[in-house]
């Protein structure tokens, strides 16, 4: 029987009493590379943030390998949307990647040689080692996204959550990121990605969740990625626009 990496039960999240996620149930098996798709305002980012305890749900529970997130932080890595931070912050690429190691250190303890070595290895993996001392505002959009990815890699987690890692990156970076994601899956990690580009879903992912405030469908791409679910998620005209 397959193990469940992430379970979501009866999750409801509201902003100012308006539900943005309504009664979501999910069971994400270990080792899948899953896309969360849905229109703008469907609650895709909110779902990830609720799972990670960044926002409080008004109902429901989350399980990371069957336990609450607070007990399982070390098993989870998170790549927020690139636009969620101020890239003029006075810090370097290496320093941002080092932040990924802070979780394993806990409060007060400082990063040392081991953390720096791990950060340098992660930079190498995403092809950003030559830029380690570059101030982050002087990196291109694609490079910034790679830095975020490296920061997640350094956490050496079992489950990776990524919020639109392909937004605003060039084709080369997109390919590089996809390759790293596929490699993560090969080593048995679970990767969950908020994704916008429906065209690439079958190519990049093996599992998909359709979301539009409510969960529409979840399962293997090969069986549930079809016009029926797309239409239910995006509205009646979706089929036409996908064919364009």
């Amino acid at each position: 029987m397959e193990k469940i990496a992430v379970s979501v039960d009866d999750l409801t999240v509201a902003y100012n009493y308006k539900p943005v996620l309504w009664d979501i149930d999910l069971a994400i098996p270990e080792g899948v590379l899953m896309a969360i798709v849905g229109p703008n305002g469907a609650g895709k980012s909110t779902l990830i943030k609720a799972i990670l305890g960044i926002i409080d749900p008004i109902a429901g529970s989350i399980g990371i390998y069957g336990k609450p997130y607070e007990d399982q932080r070390q098993k989870v890595a998170y790549v927020p949307q690139k636009g969620s931070v101020d890239w003029d912050f006075p810090t370097t690429a290496l320093d941002v990647v080092m932040m990924g190691t802070y979780g394993s250190l806990g409060w007060i303890k400082r990063p040392g040689k081991a953390q720096k070595k791990a950060a340098l290895e992660a930079l190498e993996k995403v092809g950003m080692l030559p830029f380690k001392n570059r101030q982050i505002s002087q990196l291109s959009g694609g490079q910034q996204q790679r830095i975020f990815l490296a920061r997640a890699l350094v956490q050496n987690a079992a489950i990776y959550f990524m919020d639109e890692p392909f937004q605003g990156v060039d084709a080369t970076t997109e390919k590089a990121i996809v390759n790293i994601l596929k490699e993560l899956r090969k080593t048995g990690k679970t990767v969950i990605v908020v994704h916008h580009d429906l065209q690439t879903v079958p190519e990049y992912f093996d599992w998909v969740t359709f979301l539009n405030v409510k969960k529409i469908a979840t399962g293997p791409v090969s069986t549930i990625f079809n016009d029926d679910n797309l239409t239910k998620t995006y509205g009646i005209n979706y089929k036409v626009s996908l064919q364009q």
Partner: peptide, 22 residues
């Protein structure tokens, strides 16, 4: 001195800071 790294990460990226437990 004690909370430099925590202040840095929460100032730069509050979402990550929360996810990491700070």
């Amino acid at each position: 001195w004690a909370f430099f790294k925590e202040l840095k990460v929460s100032t730069f990226d509050a979402g990550l800071s929360a996810a990491l437990g700070f």
